[in-house]
Simulated assay, not measured.
Amino acid sequence: MHIQIDKTSEVDIQPFRVLFLQELNRQFICNKCHQYGWADVYLITINGIRVGYSAVWGTDRREDRDTIFEFYVLPLYRKFTNTLFPKLCSVTKATYIECQSNDALLAAMLYEYAHSINAEAILFEDYASTDLRASDGVFRQRTSDDIPEGDQSPYVLELNGAIVASGGLMLNYNLPFADIYMQVKEPFRRQGLGSFMVQELKKVAYLMGRVPAARCNITNQISKATLQKAGLQTCGFRLKGVLKNE
Results as ranks from 00 to 15, higher is better:
168 G>I: 08
197 M>W: 11
209 G>V: 06
99 C>W: 01
45 T>M: 12
228 Q>I: 07
189 R>T: 11
40 D>I: 01
210 R>E: 13
76 L>R: 12
181 Y>I: 05
121 A>T: 10
199 Q>P: 04
241 G>Q: 03
214 A>E: 07
43 L>S: 14
140 R>V: 12
240 K>W: 01
51 V>I: 15
203 K>A: 15
232 L>Q: 10
71 F>Q: 00
95 T>D: 09
122 I>N: 08
215 R>S: 13
108 A>P: 00
178 A>P: 03
180 I>G: 04
67 T>M: 11
66 D>A: 09
24 L>N: 06
146 D>V: 02
191 Q>P: 00
87 K>T: 13
240 K>Q: 12
95 T>H: 10
207 L>H: 15
181 Y>D: 05
178 A>Y: 03
59 T>F: 10
49 I>K: 15
187 P>L: 07
234 T>D: 13
26 R>S: 11
141 Q>W: 09
64 D>L: 08
113 Y>E: 05
65 R>N: 11
133 R>W: 04
146 D>T: 01
218 I>V: 14
234 T>Q: 14
187 P>K: 09
13 I>Q: 06
196 F>L: 00
39 A>I: 06
10 E>Y: 09
32 K>R: 11
34 H>P: 00
63 E>P: 01
150 G>N: 05
136 D>V: 01
143 T>H: 05
168 G>H: 10
2 H>P: 10
38 W>C: 05
149 E>Y: 00
132 L>Y: 00
186 E>T: 12
245 N>G: 09
78 R>I: 03
34 H>Q: 02
53 Y>S: 02
220 N>G: 08
17 R>G: 06
197 M>I: 12
170 M>T: 07
169 L>R: 13
31 N>I: 01
10 E>A: 06
159 L>H: 11
159 L>F: 11
146 D>E: 03
109 M>K: 13
19 L>C: 07
166 S>M: 12
205 A>V: 06
76 L>M: 06
242 V>W: 02
189 R>G: 08
159 L>E: 05
28 F>W: 11
160 N>W: 04
16 F>Q: 01
55 A>T: 07
82 N>V: 03
114 A>M: 05
54 S>K: 00
158 E>Q: 15
170 M>H: 10
227 L>Q: 07
241 G>A: 05
159 L>I: 09
196 F>N: 00
40 D>P: 02
115 H>C: 14
31 N>G: 01
242 V>P: 00
87 K>S: 12
49 I>L: 14
91 V>P: 07
130 T>F: 09
20 F>L: 13
188 F>M: 02
202 K>T: 15
208 M>L: 15
155 Y>P: 05
209 G>N: 08
137 G>A: 15
116 S>L: 08
78 R>W: 03
223 S>D: 06
103 D>Y: 01
46 I>N: 07
7 K>N: 13
71 F>K: 01
126 D>L: 13
36 Y>D: 10
